[in-house]
Amino acid sequence: MALVRVISSDGAAFLVSQRLAKRSGKLKTEIETFRKSSDNSEAQPEIRIVTIRAEILRLVLQWLQQHQNDPVLPANQNEQDGRGDAEMGQSQWDRDFLAPMDLGIVMELILAANHLEVKGLLDITCKLVESKITGRTVDEIRTAFKLKSDFKGNEEEQTRLENRWCVEN
């Protein structure tokens, strides 16, 4: 089995099959670039991902491993709306996978899935964050995301007034 070493920003190396790695658009491109530039066809590619730390990279690879036999999402998108259907694609395993994560980790996973071009993982993580924003008030969003208002003086009131005709019922 052909393998590839994927190295996180903090130096942890993960040895995974190339078949699995190629389910990430970014890793697929990197492997192909390595193949073209390498004289030795048997050489093992080594890919360093400088924007993703080990804990997050492990989660991405874990998700890919779980979904390795799924149809590749982009080529099998929902024919009705043409977009990746995160609701349809979210299994009980996905829900259990995301359940223990705090929002900081989920955000790092979104950035990682986006960087590594893993559409299915991007869909379910974005849907999770979206569910914590849509239909919520400003205060509820601040609570959910542990955000502190940094508006000064009447800036907040000003913004609220600007939003008023589109947002409030």
Binding site: R83, C126, K127, V129, E130, I133, T134, G135, R136, T137, V138, I141, R142, F145, L147, K148, S149, D150, F151, E155, E156, T159, R160, E162, N163, C166, V167
Partner: peptide, 16 residues
């Protein structure tokens, strides 16, 4: 692409 416009407007009021 996952958020409706109303939610994006709502987010304007969360932090600077």
């Amino acid at each position: 692409e996952y958020l409706p416009l109303a939610s994006i407007l709502q987010l304007r009021g969360v932090t600077k």
